[in-house]
Design a protein around this nucleic acid. Structure first.
Lengths: 206, 206, 206, 206
DNA sequence: AATGAATGAGCATTCATTCAT
DNA sequence: GATGAATGAATGCTCATTCAT
């Protein structure tokens, strides 16, 4: 008979899951240890059995987010015909990235906008995971470069450049800083295309 | 002999200045009325003589930041030969924008990343100021379009698109999310060029 | 040409008038020196030129209230045929008293429920004014006793007894402690009659 | 050896007890969480372990008061010969009610004078408890009516009417508004009798 | 493994009052 | 007579964390 109140490894999972929900549903500044504990059905103290501190919990959350994002990017790439059409792949991935950000505002912000001093303690692990997503972009760019579809000098740099553009789009939309007369699907599409077009043959190398 | 503890109109200035420093040094979520007061050398209560609320203080800070940024963009545009060379103008402005962001990390973040929840009360005035900066970009784009230098369908949209790219670059650098092996001047330059190249004649319209 | 911003003796009047309004409209715990000043159109400091402290201001307010109440009681008594019909007089006064309380909830509470430590400094003056209202009741009771209409041993005691009953009615209604299924005009009337009937000949003396 | 600083369930009790004392000693508007904490010897935060909010603490205080009052009223009724002599019962209860109020001044004020704004959140439970005390009065009135001792149309209304009279007596005495030359035991007795006499057969119905 | 109890530091804001001008 | 500037104390409440059990 399963108990409603998880314990052991299940508790760790439950904490992560409920934290993510709280984050997505109520926002970062509503995410407190007490509230997580209440949502999970354990004591606030118990969280500390599984996570050294709130920072550590948030790092774990970020890591999971990176993995989720990775899955989505891979899925987008594969569904766009993994090897045949690098341009379509890259476009699908860019759109998937933007969609992920816009669908999970607070989560995305924690993953990519959290202030560095919150991140200071576990940078290595974090960067490794985040990098995997960029490698996905870099891989497609490299493949496209080989195939003559893209003009890219350094795929890693190219991936970063593309990333900054997509991230800027998401950030400003989430912060609601984009003029309401501008911010519609057409604008999102225009920004994505602008970010992608720089790689087209005929454009200068990134 | 000047007194260390400012008063009168000086106090207002001192509050703004010290707030900005605290913001840059410690980050938004460490910015409290008490800390500002301690840094300025007045009582927390006194801040309320000059600013209706913490929100109002932050709005004032943002407004100042927008004005400073505006000055810098104008200066960049003008020093690049205002009317003669739209491409040079746009490049100079883009670099000035990025430089401003990188030199004033937390200030920039408050200006452009602060969640709208936190500043819901005075959005109109704020947006108007922010828009003026975008109009600077849009103006150059429009001039370039007329001169046949740029290919831009709608200068306002184009300005927003450019903005998202530059903003993304700044954001990720400030959040220290960019791989240290990538994040150097060459990368910044590459990203800026990528953002600009989309407007070149021969590239698709934004 | 009259100035919108009163000064001198006018200022004192204006402070009292606006304080009373604020009290009646917003309640005692919203009555702060700052708010009064804002409502009057003077500085908070200026209030201290006319009233030693907030307590003193409130005492003055109470005194005025007592005078207003006095006027109303007198008017009620006189309109009920001052000398001819003590019973009608007393009833009219009782109703006027209750009406005054119910129409000016917060004002009434300040006049009669304010905690003694707020009153400590000026009790003498206060009591003298309050007593005048009771003397009005006592007068009618005495007249009725002479005329054989009332059975009252000591008119002063009788006035106090009547007062406690009316005050209790007002207090509980204002505090919204009376069951909603009970609290209507019929109940108010029943309570007033109950309070008055004790003085009827045939009832035991108060 | 008992520790001076209570903990656990004792702490809850200590908080209630010290709060009640502070209320009596300093008055409602001086009752702050911090002061309670200081008096109890715990941190202000700890109070929140036992009471959700200041309101909840005050509600608990009120509930306790209502229960104590209930006990006293029941005891008075029973000691006066529960069923045999309704008039004696009612008189004993009225005197017990007044005695309770005069012996627990601030306690009484919190129970019956606190403005509803301050206790808006749990009115239902509160009113239910308060009503139980009135039902005690109503019960005796009903019994007396059946026995022909009292003349009461509606026992609930009658109980409320009696309550207003007793409450007014207590309120004015506690607020020290009653003339010192009047306020002695004889006056209290006179007021109580006045309140009771309205129910005597021969008097009009309440 | 898990928890209830406890805490100190912190928050934005309001208050009555004082003082130099 | 009047004021603007300034303040210390206070408010209810939330937070991440610790510790004894």
């Amino acid at each position: 008979m399963p108990d409603a109140r998880p314990n052991g490894a299940d508790l760790r999972r439950a904490i992560l899951d409920r934290s993510r929900s709280l984050l997505v549903e109520e926002g970062y500044h509503h995410l407190s240890m007490r509230k997580i504990a209440r949502a999970v059905g354990c004591s606030a103290t118990s969280i500390y059995l599984h996570f050294e501190s709130k920072d550590a919990l948030i790092h774990a959350l970020i890591d999971e987010g990176m993995a989720r994002l990775h899955d989505r990017l891979e899925a987008a790439r594969d569904s766009a015909g993994r090897d045949d059409d690098p341009a379509a792949c890259l476009a699908a991935m860019a759109r998937a990235y933007v969609a992920f950000g816009l669908e999970n505002p607070e989560y995305y912000q924690v993953m990519f906008q959290l202030h560095p001093d919150r991140m200071a303690r576990y940078p290595a692990e974090h960067y490794r995971r985040a990098r995997r997503n960029l490698e996905l972009f870099a891989g497609v760019l490299a493949r496209g470069a080989e195939a003559g579809t893209f003009r890219v000098e350094n795929p890693d740099v190219g991936a970063h450049v593309l990333w900054t553009a997509l991230h800027g789009l998401i950030s400003l939309l989430l912060a609601e800083r984009v003029d309401v007369r501008i911010a519609d699907e057409a604008f999102v599409e225009a920004a994505i295309r602008h970010a992608l077009d720089g790689f087209r043959v005929g454009a200068p190398a990134s």
